[in-house]
């Protein structure tokens, strides 16, 4: 057992946890933040993407203890009150989802992509989302959503 403290979506949290607990398990089961999904559980699908100190990570492939002292952001932490994050709004407006299972990870990956390169091209988006798999294969609208979201983020 280790006493773990970090900031999640702006709130300080602290728990005694087993050293082998995955970050995604900590988020979902200890903190009940179930917006971060577990898809493949083998670091491939990207449904579990969150940000650690602003850097995207597959939370099924990070131990919770590795995030000690870090600033973690999940899909629950990006809206401002009732106002969706521009990238969330863009996924809604462009219907960038079918079943929605991959969406939290897609949105978190997309936000980092735009932050790193605000003027990204369609090709940059497709390559940048390589680590996020949509089993409905709805990539076309996802790419449109990221383009729209990027535009909105540039204005915001």
């Amino acid at each position: 057992m280790t006493q773990l403290s970090m900031t999640v979506n702006g709130q300080p949290v602290s728990h005694d946890i087993e050293d082998n607990m995955l970050l995604v398990t900590y988020l979902r089961e200890t903190l009940a933040l179930t917006g971060t999904h577990i898809g493949c559980d083998t670091s491939q699908c990207g449904a579990c993407v969150i940000h650690i100190n602003g850097v995207s990570a597959k939370s099924c492939t990070v131990l919770a203890v590795q995030a000690e002292g870090k600033d973690v952001t999940t899909i629950e932490g990006i809206a401002s009150g009732d106002r969706l994050h521009p990238m969330q709004q863009a996924f809604h407006d462009q219907h960038g989802l079918q079943c929605g299972y991959c969406t939290p990870g897609m949105v978190m990956s997309a936000i980092e992509l735009v932050q790193a390169n605000p003027a990204l091209s369609e090709q940059d988006i497709r390559e940048g989302l390589e680590g996020n798999i949509c089993r409905c294969t709805g990539y076309h609208n996802i790419v449109k959503a990221v383009q729209t979201g990027a535009q909105a983020m540039r204005k915001a």
Binding site: S43, G46, V49, V55, S56, A57, K58, T61, V62, S109, E112, L113, G128, E130, G131, N132
Partner: peptide, 9 residues
């Protein structure tokens, strides 16, 4: 190598 998240770690 891998994808963006793999390269981040």
């Amino acid at each position: 190598i891998g994808d963006r998240q793999v390269r981040n770690y």
